[in-house]
Nucleic acid binder design. Structure first.
Lengths: 254, 254
DNA sequence: CCCCTCGCTCATGTATACATTACGAGAGGC
DNA sequence: GCCTCTCGTAATGTATACATGAGCGAGGGG
């Protein structure tokens, strides 16, 4: 692991935050704590809290909580309405489409960059392991585990791109799309296509084939996004007709 | 102009901020004021100020200034070192490469999206006008004016993409690359290639040819970024050998 | 019965107060 | 002369105080 590099996107992941992790100042604690609660659904979309209530919830004064809320608002996870408090943003299907669009564009770029650089043996090994574990999870039908591994695979890949700003921005969009992933977790089909595509992408990255990595990941993301949006459509608006002018057509931008 | 849409990236532009624009709260004033000063060079890279000094400079108390500084730090324009104050980030050539890489990836996506949607007559007209004005500026050798128009052209195009989050993130990266553009302003050759490419891109967007818009803008950005980085190399490290392993090779990712 | 206005409350935005602790200077030792 | 340890200062991080003005309800008018 390159020090300082992958740490950004990793630190943005919600899992390793046990809420009272010390060593941070109150503002960062508030930020991570709230982000964790939002991403994991402990703070449901639509929930509204006043700054005072947030401060009481976290056992802090308004100042650090307020600064954390501002940060979350800029990230797009909450919205602050001056007299109405801080509301956890409830993302629509269109929002998810927009988010995935940006996220994918950035990730494709990151993977192409990763392919253009040498990959350290440790990272190679980790990626290979991840792909194998995912295939095993698929075989066992353990979608939740597969999804976590998939997150790891993608963020590890992105961590190799060598562009810290790109990593940071991807981390932000990762947080935005994360709740969508969780929403459809129980509705996913077996991700055999993803597993196949992952192998292709990994081979391209490890062999330094930039064009193949770019094309492979672009195709992977385009397909995976279409699937995810279709499933989200079912979850978010089950009553509506299945017509989806929202979804990008199959061949565009290849 | 779609209300709320292009306003984001436009509002992020530095020009229309006369520093004492009222109607905003102190935090936003501090943010816009500082951002304006940084982008235009009034606050030079490397400048360090304590929170107290910033507050005095802007005639505000520490609280809103601090919140603005945090926002600028997240954007990457300043760095906050706990006991040392707020420092205007001095970007290196590598930073500019990284920034342009993200910026271009996002802009290419935005232009492709713009091509996939109908363009209102007013916007069509505005874009055509801009291209013509740029060609005139090129003919007259007025590079500064051309550069401003180029900014307008690109941001207008991005404003058509219909993805507000994409626009917002592009606006952030626009701010990061802006100082680089200014640095090389006096060193630019006549932008005849850009003018040609702009026509191609505009035609593709107006006719709804997504693939052509994508390819055209990708090529445009790749070439323009190479030129910009080469010029930045001269300006930032004039003594060093002209070897640039940093620059992307000509054909990658096409 | 509905709408409009007036007034009050209280959430926020900003200012200020206070405690902590990192940094640097200075002295002392090697 | 150089390195180290200690101590004081002061910048920040956090808490609190305070003024403003927006939103909501009550009451009155149509």
């Amino acid at each position: 692991m390159t020090p300082g590099g992958p740490a950004i996107s990793r630190a943005a992941r919600p899992r390793p935050v046990p809420s009272q992790a010390t060593g941070l100042n109150a503002r960062d604690r508030a930020y991570h704590d709230l982000r964790y609660r939002i991403l994991t659904g402990r703070l449901a979309p639509g929930t509204t809290l006043l700054e005072t209530e947030l401060a009481a919830l976290l056992g802090l004064s308004r100042t650090p909580v307020r600064e954390a809320a501002i940060r979350l608002a800029e990230e797009g996870l909450v919205s602050i309405r001056p007299r109405h408090g801080v509301t956890v943003v409830d993302l629509t299907l269109v929002d998810f489409r927009d988010i995935l669009d940006v996220f994918s564009a950035l990730e494709v770029r990151a993977v192409a960059l990763a392919a253009s650089r040498p990959v350290e043996p440790a990272a190679r090994e980790a990626l290979v392991q991840l792909v194998q574990k995912m295939e095993r999870a698929t075989a066992e039908g353990d979608i939740a585990r597969w999804s976590d591994l998939d997150d790891d695979f993608h963020s590890t890949l992105v961590g190799l791109c060598g562009n810290p700003r790109l990593q940071r921005t991807i981390g932000e969009y990762w947080g935005l799309q994360y709740r969508g992933r969780r929403l459809i977790l129980t509705h996913r089909p077996l991700p055999t296509a993803s597993d196949t595509e992952h192998r292709v992408i990994l081979d391209a990255v490890l062999s330094g084939d930039v064009a193949a990595a770019h094309a492979g990941h672009l195709a992977h993301r385009a397909r995976a996004d279409r699937v995810q949006l279709a499933l989200l459509h079912r979850v978010l608006s089950p009553a509506e007709p299945p017509v989806l002018p929202i979804l990008p057509s199959d061949k565009e931008l290849t």
